Amino acid sequence: MANVFEFVAETRSATGSSAAKIVRRQGKVPAVIYGGSEAPAMLVLDHNELLKQLAHEAVYSHVLDIKVDGRTEKAILKHIQRHPAKPQILHIDFMRVDESHKVKVHVPLHFINEATSIGVKKGGAVSHAMADVEVACMPSALPEFIEVDMANVDVGVTLHLSDLVLPAGVEIPELQQGSEHDHPVVQISKPKGESASEEASA
């Protein structure tokens, strides 16, 4: 994890919806940081700076530096509330990270070799069921993304969670709950019209 993301925040004392509206009118974003042995702390961050940071895909799967009143806390992004119609962040939640305990984070999936895969060369169409996956690992082992190699995927084949190649020390909590939780990730379906022609032949 070469990237280091630092969020500069200030503490805030006023709470409630009216106080949050005042913060937003000032071009800032209300936030909270919680978890660990310390009590939750209410924060405010600069909206424009926050948007710049959130433009990086890697920020969602990294341990972040939250600089508050001169001291730095380690945390991960836990929830972002966005405006339904505007490019505006309404609220953001950070969860403190303990370097000695595992964290659960949603990590993006990067699909490679789709255009040159066996199935696509035969005319098949790629269909993604997931864009990211929740992983559990120590903070130091947190991957920026999980790569899904499509090169050898044929027509009619579906890759599931159990097919993902994970870095050392990384696991998928969903798979610990049984085979019924081995959800599909991506598949290559038959070329359009092929199913209809097969039925006609039958």
Score class of each variant (00 low, 15 high):
A200T: 14
S37F: 00
V120S: 02
L50R: 15
G35F: 06
Q88I: 13
A19Q: 07
D69M: 13
M130W: 00
A9P: 08
V126S: 05
K192L: 07
T158G: 01
A200W: 11
D149L: 05
P40F: 11
V148H: 06
D69I: 06
K67R: 13
V59G: 13
A31E: 05
L161P: 04
L64A: 11
R71H: 11
E199K: 08
M1K: 04
G119W: 00
E199F: 04
Q176G: 04
P40A: 05
T116Y: 03
K121Q: 12
T116V: 15
S117M: 02
V120M: 03
E171T: 10
S162P: 03
S162E: 02
A125S: 08
V148S: 04
H79C: 02
C137W: 02
E134A: 11
K78I: 06
S179P: 03
V170Q: 06
A58S: 15
T158H: 10
F5L: 00
L64D: 09
E57G: 12
E174R: 04
V155Y: 01
G123Q: 11
A115M: 07
D149N: 11
A141I: 01
E194K: 13
H47P: 06
D65W: 04
S197P: 00
S37D: 11
Q187H: 14
A39F: 09
V157P: 00
A85E: 12
K121V: 08
E6S: 15
L142F: 05
F145R: 13
Q177E: 06
V120G: 01
E180A: 03
V97W: 01
P167R: 02
R82D: 02
E180W: 03
H83P: 07
L64M: 10
I118E: 06
S13R: 03
A58W: 07
D93I: 10
V68M: 09
E49G: 15
G27L: 11
L166E: 03
L159A: 12
D98C: 02
M138E: 08
K190E: 15
I112N: 02
R12Y: 01
V133H: 06
D182K: 01
P173Q: 05
A196W: 10
L77V: 01
Q88Y: 11
S13I: 07
H181K: 09
L166Q: 03
L50N: 09
P143K: 01
A131N: 14
C137M: 02
V165S: 06
F7S: 13
D182A: 03
S197E: 14
S100L: 05
S18T: 14
C137V: 04
I118P: 00
H128L: 08
E180C: 00
E199I: 15
S61E: 14
K67T: 07
H47G: 06
D93P: 04
V63N: 08
D69A: 15
V32L: 07
H83Y: 03
S61H: 08
V135L: 07
L166S: 02
I92S: 12
L43Q: 10
G35D: 05
P84W: 13
P87F: 07
K104G: 05
L164K: 00
E10L: 14
S179Y: 12
Q26Y: 07
F7A: 09
L109E: 08
H47K: 14
A9H: 12
L175P: 01
G178M: 03
T11N: 10
L51M: 14
V135I: 08
V8F: 09
I172H: 09
G178I: 00
